[in-house]
Simulated assay, not measured.
Amino acid sequence: MSSETSPFRKKTVQDTWTHRTVLLTEAVEALHIKPDGHYIDATFGRGGHSRLILSRLSADGRLTAFDKDVEAIAEAQTIADPRFSIRHEGFNQLAGLAPSIAMGLLMDLGISSPQIDNPARGFSFRSDGPLDMRMDTTRGQSVADWLADASIDSMTEVIRDYGEERFAGQIAKAIDRRRQERGPLRGTAELAEVVAGAVKTREPGKDPATRTFQALRIFINAELEELQQALEASLKVLQPEGRLVVISFHSLEDRIVKQFIAEHSREVYDRRAPFAAPKAMKLKALGRIKPSEAEVAGNPRARSAVMRVAERTGVGA
């Protein structure tokens, strides 16, 4: 069904797109809150973590939050608390903060349920909507705009590398055929239909479009590049003994976080100067946590979450 004949559903006052924060208590406990400290919620979302952090702070504590999503910013502006501030920016802007400003930094890398459930955002193939997927709808290129002109090779690379999709080439060719026959794709249902026709085998319980939609969302928002930048910035903004807490929801993100913590949790020797003192480690890995069975039963979207925790050392700044 084309975008011309299927008007995309808008949210009405009867709609309720609620969000259940994953690993809420575990993440805030991992920050090891000091009441007078300054903390950063790098991905405000719908504010579950931020509100719990604020409840643990004294009058002298501070919380700075970041988010690219205009709906998240609107939600954040309902928090009338002088200890709290929100920035309409991606967390790759963490480097702009003052050095050693924070006692804790939290990154929840999942997209919020209202983003997924609102068809107008274009993140989901379960309801027809515009093929957008931008976290920040005020700027940048939508998925529909990118797919209109992308080469088969470019589409194949994105779907393969960001979606870990083994049928990436077939999907890219199917999208190209669809463009030539009927013009550019504009809706999520159209794309899901094209992908379903190209993916010949399906993983049990998983829609054939899952990996392609993940890939396009990650690519259009430069999510992995932004994560790398934010992790590097964490070394600058965290005070000694400050905690880094990152919740990931797919293997690509978790691999980046795991490797970053491992890289900075060991002393580095310069092979060109074998007798020189090694560069001191900058982080101390503290552990990996998964949601409990009870949380997953109550919120199936939590099942893929992995939380990693590290502590900034007092050396190697």
Rank of each mutant, 00 (worst) to 15 (best):
A98Y: 05
P99C: 09
S100Y: 12
S100C: 13
I101C: 15
I101A: 15
G104Q: 07
G104E: 11
L105F: 09
L106P: 00
M107R: 02
D108Y: 07
G110N: 05
G110A: 08
I111V: 15
S112R: 06
S112W: 04
S112D: 03
S113I: 13
S113P: 02
P114T: 08
P114S: 12
Q115V: 07
I116C: 04
I116D: 00
I116M: 06
N118P: 05
N118Q: 12
N118Y: 07
N118G: 08
P119S: 10
P119N: 11
A120V: 14
R121A: 10
G122P: 07
F123I: 08
F123V: 07
F123Y: 04
S124N: 08
F125Q: 02
R126K: 15
R126L: 14
R126C: 11
R126T: 14
S127K: 15
D128P: 05
P130Q: 05
P130N: 06
M133E: 06
M133P: 01
D136T: 05
T137H: 11
T137V: 15
S142L: 13
V143R: 04
V143I: 07
A144S: 15
A144R: 05
A144I: 09
A144F: 07
D145F: 10
W146Y: 13
W146S: 04
W146R: 06
L147V: 02
A148E: 12
A148D: 10
A148R: 14
A148C: 12
D149Q: 14
A150F: 11
D153I: 11
D153P: 03
D153L: 12
S154M: 09
S154D: 15
M155A: 00
T156G: 10
T156D: 09
T156E: 11
T156W: 01
T156H: 08
E157K: 14
E157N: 14
V158R: 00
V158G: 01
I159W: 03
R160I: 02
D161K: 12
E165V: 01
R166H: 10
F167T: 02
F167C: 08
F167P: 00
A168P: 05
A168N: 05
Q170I: 00
I171R: 00
I171P: 00
I171L: 03
A172E: 01
A172M: 06
I175L: 04
I175C: 01
D176H: 06
R177V: 14
R178T: 06
Q180V: 03
G183T: 12
G183N: 06
P184I: 08
R186D: 13
G187K: 00
A189H: 10
E190T: 03
L191W: 01
A192P: 02
A192V: 05
E193C: 07
E193D: 15
E193G: 08
E193I: 03
V194M: 04
V194D: 03
V195I: 15
A196M: 08
A196Q: 09
G197Q: 04
G197L: 04
V199G: 07
K200C: 05
T201M: 14
T201R: 15
T201D: 10
R202C: 02
R202G: 02
E203L: 13
P204H: 09
K206W: 04
